[in-house]
């Protein structure tokens, strides 16, 4: 090692250069890295979301068929770079863009059903009987019962997020099938076969108004043990 020290450096100089190097290095690297990684910092460290937190209307409960699911699209407004209100409402009289910046999702709504395990067919549908008489003006307890018995499922497959669809086999058994790799779920979104690691994603924040309209907030039943979503669902 001694022959390397042709130009001896004192301990103080060494520390000084080290400190200077650290400061200059930080000045040079922190701004560009923070500039590029700001979405990661905002999402992962500060826990912010680009997706609107409010309620979005999905459908009326009377639109849900008795023995099969129906899909509805919902659009959550998003605030991301120039789509945010800071930019878009800069000049309220002049619209900055005609684009509606939204996240478009599809939701499968169905009544919770008991499945006959031998045939795979639906044995019993938990559809409240008062729905035959009225389609609005539900009381508090009726709304609770409706909410309890509706499956609000994301159409995003729990494998890699392709959109699933409802298919009925020749023998009359209905299933959600993912077109990408053949993931299978029953009407309640319970995993039946194929590569998905879990059941279909459910919306956790659901409410039903007196007029029978169903609303959701963006958010899924991510298992508490897993702090990461796998796959990432948007």
């Amino acid at each position: 090692m001694t022959e390397l020290q042709k130009d001896p450096i004192t301990r103080g100089d060494f520390l000084g250069f080290g400190l200077l190097g650290t400061v200059v290095g930080a000045i040079l690297t922190i701004p560009p890295v923070a500039f590029v990684l700001s979405p990661v910092i905002k999402t992962d460290l500060l826990g912010e979301s680009d997706i609107d937190e409010g309620w979005q209307e999905v459908a009326s409960v009377s639109d849900i068929p008795t023995d099969e699911p129906a899909s509805f699209t919902i659009e959550f407004p998003i605030e991301q770079i120039y789509a945010g209100p800071d930019v878009q409402n800069q000049f309220p009289d002049e619209k900055r863009s005609d684009e509606e910046f939204t996240l478009k999702n599809a939701v499968w709504l169905s009544w919770k059903s008991e499945i006959n395990h031998d045939t795979g067919k639906i044995a019993k549908v938990e559809r409240p009987s008062f729905l035959d008489e009225k389609s609005s003006g539900f009381s508090e307890s009726e709304r609770e019962e409706l909410k309890k018995n509706i499956n609000v499922l994301s159409n995003s497959c729990a494998h890699l997020g392709c959109p699933v669809r409802w298919l009925i086999n020749l023998d009359g058994k209905g299933e959600f099938l993912c077109p990408c790799h053949g993931g299978l779920y029953d009407i309640n979104g319970t995993y039946e076969g194929g590569p998905p690691p879990r059941d279909m994603y459910r919306y956790v924040n659901v409410k039903i108004e007196e007029d029978g309209k169903l609303y959701v907030k963006h958010g899924y039943d991510i298992e508490p043990g897993l702090d990461k979503q796998q796959p990432y669902v948007v």
Partner: peptide, 13 residues
């Protein structure tokens, strides 16, 4: 994913 998406959803970013 957040780096590529530019946030937590697919959008303009």
């Amino acid at each position: 994913i957040h780096f590529l998406l530019g946030g937590d959803t697919v959008g303009p970013a």
